[in-house]
Amino acid sequence: MKKCFWLFLFSFSILFANEIAQKQKDIKENERVVKQLSKKLEDLADEILENEKNLKKIANEINILSSKTSKLESSVRNQIKSLEQLNVQNKELLKNKNKIEGKLIDLIAKDFAYDLAIPKNYIESEDSIIVLEMIENLDKIFKDNFYQISKDYEDISKKIEEKQTQITIINTNLKSYKNQIDELKNLRKKQEQEIAKQRTDKEIYTRKLSNLQVQQQELRQTLNKLKIIKEKEEEKKVTQKIDEKKPSNNIKQVGSSYQTSSVKSYSGVKTIAPLESYIVKQKFGNYIDPIYNIKIYNENVVLKSNTANAAVRNVLDGKVVFAKATPTLKKVIIVENKNGIHTIYAHLDKIAPGVKVGRNIKKGYIIGRVESDLTFEVTQKNFHINPLEMIR
C-alpha cells in the first residue's frame, strides 16, 4: 500500500512538473505574440523575410547532414559488426595471454628449482657429471621454451594492442555518427519551432495588413459622409488609366484609398504634435508589402506614444465636426480648421468630456487619451497632407 502511494505521488509530481513547463512555454509564446503585435508593419515584414532566409539555411543544413548520415549508415552497421567481432577476438587473446603468463611463471619456477638442486660445494663424480649434463640439457630446453613462449606472449600482446586501437577508432567513429544524428535531431526540432513562429508571425502580419485596409476604408467613408474628401469619377478614371499603363511587377493595388493625385504639400506654419512623446510607427505615403506584394497608400501616420494613457492634443484652433466611437477605428475626433484643413484623430481610447460636435477648441486642448497608437490624418480641400510636414 505504501509503495503504491509513493508511486502515485511520483507520477503526479511528474505530470504536475510537465504541466508547469507547458504553461511556462505558453506564457513565453504569448509574450512573444504581444511583442510581435506591437511592432511596425514594415519591421514585422523584414523579420518574416529574414526568418524565411533562416529557414532555408536550416533546411540546407538538414539536407547536407541527412546526406552525410545516410552515407555513414551502412558503414556504421559494418563497424558495429566489426566491433563485436573484435571484442570477441580480444577476449580470446586475453585468455591466451593469461595462459602464456602461467606457462612463463611455471618455467621460471622449474628452472629455479633445478638451480637449487646443484649444491655449491658438490664433489665431482661420474654420477654427478651425468646429473649436471642432464640439468644443462634441461636448462637449454627451458631456455628454448622460455624464448618461444616469450615470443608468443609478445606477439599476442601486439595483436591485443592492434585490436584495441581498431576498437578505439571504431568507437570514435560511432561517437561522431551519434553526434551527427543528435545534431540532425536538434536541427529538425529548431526547424519545427521556427516554422511555428513563422506561421504565427505571418498570421499577425496578415491580420495587421487586413486591419489597416479596413480601417483606411472606414476612415475614407467617414470623410466622404462628412463631405471632407470627395471621390471624383474623373480622378478615378485618370488614375485607373495611368495604372493600366504601368508595368505590374506582380504588385497588387488594394483599397480605394490609393490615389496619388489627392496629395499636396503643407504650406502653413508648423504646429505642435498631437502627442508629447512618440515614435512614428507608420509613415505617410506608398507602402509596398514585401510578403504578399500588395501596394497600400497610407493617407495618415501612426504615432506610438512613449507613455501609456497619453494625452492627445488638438494641433490647430478649430471646430469639432465628429466625435464618436466607430467599429474598427475605436474613438474618432475630426476637427475643422482654417483654410479648409481638417485634422483627424483615430484609435482614441477616451474622448475628453468637453469635446462635443459643434464646439470650438483651441490649439493644445486635450481632446482625449490613447494607451499606445494614435492614427493622425490631415486633409485640405479634398487633398491629403503628410501630417509630419505640419508638426514640429
Rank of each mutant, 00 (worst) to 15 (best):
K3M: 12
W6V: 10
F8W: 03
L9Y: 03
F10G: 11
F10D: 03
F16V: 05
A17Y: 05
N18V: 03
E19V: 04
I20V: 14
A21I: 10
Q22E: 14
K23S: 14
K25C: 10
N30S: 15
R32L: 12
K35G: 13
K39R: 09
L41W: 01
D43M: 08
E50F: 11
E52C: 08
L55C: 08
N60I: 06
N60F: 12
I64L: 15
I64N: 14
K71P: 01
E73F: 08
N78Y: 07
Q79Y: 07
I80D: 05
L86P: 02
V88W: 01
L94E: 13
K95L: 15
K99P: 00
A113V: 04
L116Y: 00
N121H: 09
N121V: 08
Y122Q: 11
I129E: 11
I129D: 08
L132A: 13
I135P: 02
N137K: 06
L138R: 01
I141V: 09
I141W: 00
I141C: 02
F142S: 12
K143H: 11
Y147F: 09
Y147I: 13
S150N: 08
D152S: 12
D152Q: 11
Y153F: 13
E154N: 12
D155L: 12
D155Q: 12
T168F: 08
L174K: 07
S176C: 01
E183G: 13
L184Q: 11
L187D: 07
K190W: 00
I195P: 01
I195M: 07
A196Y: 01
Q198W: 06
T200Q: 08
T200F: 00
Y205Q: 05
K208F: 00
V214T: 13
R220G: 11
L223K: 05
I228P: 03
I229Q: 07
E231F: 02
K236M: 07
V238C: 02
I242G: 06
D243R: 10
S248H: 06
S248N: 09
I251Y: 03
I251A: 11
I251H: 05
S256G: 12
K264Y: 07
S267C: 05
V269S: 09
T271Y: 01
P274A: 12
Y278Q: 09
V280S: 04
F284I: 04
G285A: 08
Y287T: 01
N293V: 04
K295D: 06
I296P: 02
I296Y: 12
E299P: 00
V302S: 10
N309T: 04
A311K: 03
R313N: 09
R313F: 14
K319Y: 04
F322W: 04
A323D: 06
K331D: 11
A352G: 06
G354Y: 00
R359I: 07
I366C: 00
I367C: 05
R369I: 05
V370H: 01
D373A: 07
T375E: 08
E377K: 02
E377T: 05
N382Q: 09
